[in-house]
């Protein structure tokens, strides 16, 4: 289908067809990374700016590589150390950048809504690389892409997302994407981190990974942030790990062909043990490679929309 959005801000507003288009396009881009010259020309002469208000090495590098492989010029703008600290408003920062002539602004921010506000004022395309706890569309797309690669489809599968769901943009974007493609979603974690309101999105909630692990075709393990424990939302890392950590024992109850996923970086021994993270069911490294193809697809599609 024809892609008509100049921005990629989240999966909530995308249709099932639009999500499938991104995944299909990503499929074509996967092949580019296997060539001897890992570059194609569609974004030649175009400028992609990584506007990161929240530090993130992995996502930034992934977007940078994706843009370079499309032959774009890449600029990195870490706003944590720039005018934002001096009190420049979000819109001013973006407008200043745009007046230098950019085509795509990839935005990562610590609070929700920044990419959406920017998309309204900028002529350039805006791609959300994670806005607070709200959405992280390219991460969810690469997660779903990885599942589709292995299982051939998404519809009818059961996917568990384990961890601090309430504060997770990865969880939210995944829920939107998976539900639209017809998967069953189970959210697993301590009751203080998995708000019951999420049921209204059509997801199942469980406070016991052991109860549901046998039904899962894929398990997406989220990183547990130390700040949450410090804020007292659960008593200790040790308890979290005992109740929800994905270890070899728990894996015995899982399906033999279950996929183990993690957005990274991994807290080894906390939410997942090294044996499982490096084990035969883990597709964590593939996710990273797929991330490149998905981000190339995202950049290609948003820039193809005529202003």
């Amino acid at each position: 289908m024809e892609w008509t959005r100049k921005d990629l801000l989240g999966l909530q507003e995308l249709s099932q067809e639009e999500i499938t288009t991104i995944l299909d396009t990503a499929q074509s881009f996967k092949e580019v990374s296997t060539r001897s010259i890992r570059k194609v020309p569609p974004l030649r002469g175009k400028v992609v700016v990584n506007l990161f208000f929240e530090p993130s090495t992995r996502t930034r590098i992934s977007f940078e590589l994706a843009a370079s492989r499309l032959s774009a010029d890449v600029i990195n703008f870490e706003a944590t150390t720039s005018s934002a600290a001096k009190g420049e408003t979000l819109t001013d920062t973006a407008r200043n950048i745009e007046s230098m002539g950019v085509d795509v602004v990839v935005v990562r921010h610590s609070v929700p809504g920044a990419p959406h506000r920017l998309a309204k004022v900028l002529c350039a395309s805006v791609v959300n690389a994670g806005d607070g706890s709200h959405e992280h569309p390219t991460q969810a797309l690469l997660d779903i892409f990885t599942i589709r690669q292995h299982k051939g489809k998404v519809e009818g599968l059961t996917v568990a997302i384990v961890g601090d769901i309430g504060h997770s943009r990865v969880a939210r974007s995944n829920i939107w994407g998976l539900k639209k493609l017809g998967a069953n979603v189970i959210l697993v974690g301590p009751s203080t981190l998995v708000p019951t309101k999420f049921k209204e999105l059509g997801a199942e909630i469980s406070y016991s990974l052991d109860d549901v692990i046998g039904r899962c075709d894929a398990i997406n393990v989220l990183r547990i942030q130390l700040e949450r424990q410090e804020a007292g939302l659960f008593p200790s890392i040790r308890e979290y790990s005992r109740l929800f950590g994905l270890n070899v024992e728990r894996m015995k109850r899982a399906k033999p062909d279950v996929l183990i996923m993690h957005p990274g970086p991994i807290n080894r021994g906390v939410e997942i043990t090294p044996q499982v993270a490096d084990g035969s069911r883990s597709v964590i490294l593939e996710q990273v490679a797929n991330g490149l193809a998905v981000r190339m697809a995202a950049l290609y599609l948003v820039t193809s929309v005529k202003r």
Binding site: E2, W3, T21, D24, T25, Q27, S28, F29, E31, V40, P41, P42, Y300, L301, S304, V305, K306
Partner: peptide, 19 residues
């Protein structure tokens, strides 16, 4: 991806795989 008219055409073409 190698077309020289990507910025001119009205309908954005679907990319299929190269093998």
């Amino acid at each position: 991806l190698y077309r020289d008219d990507l910025s001119l055409i009205a309908v954005q073409p679907v990319v299929h795989a190269t093998e």
